[in-house]
Design a protein around this nucleic acid. Structure first.
Length: 199
DNA sequence: CATGGGATTGACT
DNA sequence: GTCAATCCCATGC
C-alpha cells in the first residue's frame, strides 16, 4: 500500500504508473494525481545523476519520503523517493484534480479558474501548501505530513497512458517516462499530436 | 569565489 | 507564441 515504504521500493517506472489516480494530501487539501514523471540516477535529466550531494542526498535515501526542491528560483516541486535506499530514483507529480479544501486552494492560488488550480507541478505545491520545509519528510506511516492514499473507487480502473516525453528538460528527452490519465483535461501539457494517418 | 543553468509560471503581444 | 523573474547549487578557475 501507499502507506508502506515497500510500495515505493519498486522500479520507479512502476511507481510512477501506479501513483496516477492516487490521492495526494497535505492538511485539509488533497487532489487526485493525474500526471507523473519518473526520474532515475542512470539518466542525465535526473538530479541524482551527479551523484550524492547535499542537494541530492534525499533522492538517494530510503523510499517513501518526500523530495521537494526549488525550481527556477521560484517554484517548489514535489517528488516521491523510490527504489531501495542507496539508489537515486524519484517520481515527480505534475498535475492533480482538486478534491478536498478547494476553497483553501483558491486562497493560496489567487483568482484563477478551478481548472488552473493544480494543473502544473509548481501550481499544485502552492495549492496544497507544500513548501521546501517539507523536503525529506515521510509519506508513510500513520499520519505523515504529506500522505499519498490509494485510488478512490471512482479511479480504481483509470486508463493510464505512457506515451509522452517528459517536460521542460534538455537531457535524456527521448525517454517516455511520463504517465497520465488518458484523455483528462487536467494534465499540465497536452499529449503530442498523433502522427498523420498513412494514405 | 564566480558563474551558468534548470523537472516553471504568468504576464504580455 | 514569447520572455522575464529569481535562487539554489554544481562546476570550474
Amino acid at each position: 500500500m501507499t502507506s508502506d515504504p515497500a510500495w515505493y521500493a519498486r522500479p520507479v517506472l512502476d511507481v510512477a504508473r501506479d501513483l496516477v489516480g492516487c490521492v495526494l494530501r497535505h492538511g485539509d487539501t488533497s487532489g487526485v494525481i493525474l500526471e507523473t514523471e519518473a526520474y532515475h540516477f542512470t539518466e542525465a535529466a535526473c538530479h541524482a545523476y551527479v551523484g550524492i550531494t547535499e542537494r541530492t542526498r534525499v533522492i538517494w535515501g530510503p523510499p517513501g519520503r518526500s523530495y521537494v526542491y526549488r525550481s527556477y528560483g521560484i517554484h517548489a516541486l514535489f517528488n516521491a523517493v523510490c527504489e531501495d535506499d542507496g539508489v537515486g530514483a524519484a517520481v515527480l507529480v505534475r498535475a492533480l484534480e482538486p478534491l478536498d479544501g478547494i476553497e483553501v486552494m483558491r486562497m493560496r492560488r489567487g483568482p484563477v479558474k478551478e481548472s488552473e488550480l493544480c494543473n502544473g507541478p509548481g501550481k499544485l505545491t502552492q495549492a496544497l501548501g507544500i513548501g521546501l520545509e517539507l523536503n525529506d519528510t515521510p509519506l508513510t506511516g500513520a499520519t505523515p505530513p504529506i500522505a499519498i492514499e490509494p485510488r478512490p473507487p471512482a479511479w480504481r480502473d483509470v486508463d493510464i497512458v505512457r506515451t509522452a516525453p517528459r517536460i521542460g528538460i534538455t537531457k535524456a528527452v527521448e525517454l517516455d517516462w511520463r504517465f497520465s490519465v488518458r484523455g483528462h483535461r487536467g494534465v499540465s501539457r497536452p499529449l503530442p499530436a498523433p502522427p498523420p494517418a498513412p494514405r
